[in-house]
Design a protein around this nucleic acid. Sequence first.
DNA 1: ACCTCAATTCATCATATGATGAATTGAATT
DNA 2: AATTCAATTCATCATATGATGAATTGAGGT
Lengths: 120, 120
Amino acid sequence: MAKSKEGMCEILCVNTKAVKEISARMASEDAISVMAETFALLGDPTRLRVVQALSHGELCVCDLAAMLGVGRTAVSNHLRLLRGMRLVSYRREGKLAYYSLADEHIATLLNKCLEHVEER
Amino acid sequence: MAKSKEGMCEILCVNTKAVKEISARMASEDAISVMAETFALLGDPTRLRVVQALSHGELCVCDLAAMLGVGRTAVSNHLRLLRGMRLVSYRREGKLAYYSLADEHIATLLNKCLEHVEER
DNA sequence: ACCTCAATTCATCATATGATGAATTGAATT
DNA sequence: AATTCAATTCATCATATGATGAATTGAGGT
């Protein structure tokens, strides 16, 4: 029971060894950063609905706006953010812009989360 | 049923059929809401680091604060939010509160996201 | 009892974020 | 080239959120 002698929570409180071991297994700062950004994108209800809709097929901005009951501007802004993280891709067909998921992983992520929610 | 006659993007723009099909496959409002909250919790870098650390073993607030380089107050607040969504659980041992992940699914979610990040 | 200290709560502040409407862009049809 | 309309960008606003320090709580140690 190596309790801290002059312990001082300022530095480390309990178990230096455990902290070191776990520290060594942490993902890189970059990875954490990108993961957090990705999760944050999925963390807004409207944006999550956009992503979920797209996981079932491509849609244009207008249809997304109509089916989700939000303005085109809002949808467009969300899609811009999603594009920024390469979660969605799009193709132009005349005036329309058809969006779809850029990545299988995202749909997997949604499904895993859905599993979690349904089982809790 | 081709509504696109005098079209009006106000209602639907392109393909009523596709929209209906996809609408039918959307998760429930409740599920979406909980999923979004869950993702949002993982969407903050500090909180994500807390969760990742806990995915490797239980730690007390003090150790988390020390190893992540943030104040105990911040850690405590994050843990409160995570507790609220039952993502972490804790046990008391004397003065210390040891936290750990409450759910296998969360670690899975992290790993899937990490895979995504590493392959992009 | 008193004191210590980890943890939590509370209040505050600065910043980030999402929604909205107006203006702009770009492509197609006439 | 003029018009139409989906999509985007821009500016604004209200709200949400994370960090911090002070005060409080609770369990041990003396």
